[in-house]
């Protein structure tokens, strides 16, 4: 069984984890074009190399970030999301959306 290290719970069987997609920088929701937003939502990079990914430890509902080589499947490092995301982002609907 492949083992992944959860930053909160320690090493666990990979079956306890759920993949959550690539970590991407979110464009400014108030100024982004529709095309750029669609790119952000629907497209992912598919280059070979080390990628940043969201993973969920399902039994504890804990989301964290993993650095993984997508060819060798080696997990290089896992760490809490607050290493990258320091501030809460609140969404406010524009008048046109309201």
């Amino acid at each position: 069984m492949k083992i992944m290290n959860c930053p909160l719970n320690g090493p666990r069987n990979i079956s306890e984890f759920v993949y959550g997609g690539q970590v991407k920088a979110m464009p400014d929701v108030n100024s982004v074009s529709d095309e750029a937003w669609a790119n952000y939502v629907f497209y992912e990079q598919n280059d070979i190399g080390i990628v940043l990914e969201w993973w969920l430890h399902s039994p504890s509902s804990y989301w964290f970030i993993a650095e993984r080589h997508n060819a060798s499947d080696e997990i290089i490092r896992t760490y809490p999301a607050d290493e990258l995301f320091k501030e809460r982002i609140d969404f406010t609907a524009s008048e046109a959306d309201a």
């Binding site: 719970n9 666990r12 079956s15 306890e16 430890h57 399902s58 039994p59």
Partner: peptide
């Protein structure tokens, strides 16, 4: 405390 799986279901 361990938050893990037992018999393939989530458990504490």
């Amino acid at each position: 405390v361990a938050q893990t799986q037992m018999a393939l279901i989530n458990c504490i």
